[in-house]
Design a protein around this nucleic acid. Structure first.
Lengths: 168, 168
DNA sequence: CATATATAATTAGCCGCCATACTATATGGC
DNA sequence: GCCATATAGTATGGCGGCTAATTATATATG
């Protein structure tokens, strides 16, 4: 697997400096490079539909809510700020995939609904996205998948614990 | 391991819709969530030094080049555009970690050098960063590391091949 | 020598994310 | 009923990516 250019540069430097645990560093960079590659692939899949990953998430959430959702609910479910949702909705509205309607009972609030085009796009994209993900991990056997999940969990345990309180 | 909020929402929807291969989807989201968590952790480690990940990479490259480097060389080694390097250098210059000097032999070119503060920061941060990474993967045995690297490679093979030419 | 082309760095504008600050509206306590 | 406080959505500005365009300088070619 090819590391991202920046990681290749960092890794080379780490080797030159004979840092301890170069293998661990390489593994870290490999993980990050894979994730970036997946993100890029996903972005390339979504772009022709006028979607980014953030917009896609909102589209998905809205498609599941036939009555529409308020921006603050979208923000909470997507795990981003309301300000970010405003920006993503601007994009979706430009693409004519959603519409903002005033809420009847609260004049501060909005109700976001998919347009007809939004629903059509959603249908097409979800299908494609599902097959894409299935393809990504399709050549791993069930036991390999379990191993991978287990190893990722094991790494995740260490995050946030490994440098706080370090001698600066 | 806890998935990012957005992935949790997507996964729940995938389950509700009974999409095929929910396990594969979960594994994908787990990988992406881990990478995001690593990035966040790294950002938190670097921020007190006035560094982002991009700036850190340049700092690393510059520390290795005692004679300084031109922005275009930095761009190439870091794998970003020269325009991006200009922005990163602006940040590093604001933090007084680097200085831009005119190149003696080519009046278009610059030579970027670390300041004294830049060198000191570099030394501290590299050390801390190295220990941080080592800690991240420190609880994996050699054989587990090899397994993980192998599984990541196997996933990486599928990227870019799994949706091109799909029935849209 | 003059001109065309290539290269170095920057600027400007876009995207998606964030935090912060603002306006409008609801709501609860006195 | 009035005012403090909370909430909804947005505006603003920063960061770090990108592409495309600009300006200055080098270099190669006729």
């Amino acid at each position: 697997m090819v590391l991202e250019q920046k990681y290749q540069a960092l890794l080379q430097e780490a080797q030159r400096r004979q840092l301890p645990d170069v293998a661990g560093i390489r593994l870290c960079f490999q993980t990050l490079s894979l994730a970036s590659a997946i993100d890029r692939d996903c972005a390339a899949l979504l772009a022709p539909h006028g979607l980014s990953e953030g917009r896609f998430v909102l589209l998905f959430l809205l498609d599941a809510a036939s009555e529409g959702l308020a921006p603050n609910a979208l923000a909470e479910q997507a795990g981003v700020t309301r300000a970010t949702v405003t920006g993503l909705l601007d994009g979706l509205e430009r693409e004519a995939l959603i519409e903002r309607r005033a809420d009847a009972s609260d004049r501060r609030a909005l109700r976001i609904r998919l347009t007809r085009k939004g629903k059509q796009t959603a249908k097409k994209v979800f299908d494609q996205h599902g097959r894409w993900i299935a393809g990504l991990f399709g050549n791993l056997s069930p036991s390999e998948r379990e191993q991978l999940a287990c190893l990722l969990d094991k790494v995740a345990e260490n995050i946030g614990t490994s440098w706080r309180g370090m001698p600066q």
